[in-house]
């Protein structure tokens, strides 16, 4: 039997899963701090805006959003499968298409930013 090409999808899934496990909680805490007005000066709006406007900031934001989307799309596909929904081609096409659209939208927004 031929070796599978699944690593293409699983690579982004694993990387995205690891990333969201570490980064998402931090982002949530920072967002909460910002919402309650307890952000340190270093992370003030102007400074973060400047960071996000630079090419490096854009790259970081894109990688985080892209990998999160793809990992969650794959997680959702596996969840469907585990629950016995065997329409894998339909499910896979739908969730990956959503992740794809999300990635393109991210690119467009970042390019215009």
């Amino acid at each position: 039997m031929a070796k599978s090409n699944k690593p293409i999808i699983w690579g982004t899934f694993a990387a995205g899963g690891t990333l969201t496990a570490f980064v998402t909680p931090v982002l949530m805490v920072l967002t909460l701090l910002a919402a309650t007005g307890h952000l340190p000066d270093m992370l003030a709006y102007d400074k973060l805006h400047a960071f996000a406007a630079g090419w490096f900031g854009k790259l970081v934001i894109f990688v985080i959003i892209f990998l999160s989307l793809w990992s969650q799309a794959h997680r959702l596909r596996c969840t469907f499968y585990d629950f016995g929904a065997r329409a894998d081609t339909l499910v896979a096409t739908t969730v990956y298409a959503l992740a794809g659209v999300g990635s393109i939208v991210t690119l467009v927004v970042l390019a215009r930013f």
């Binding site: 039997m1 599978s4 699983w10």
Partner: peptide
Amino acid sequence: QEEIATSEGVWECT
């Protein structure tokens, strides 16, 4: 790997 790196090998695991 010829057996386990296949779709009916490790990649069936979720």
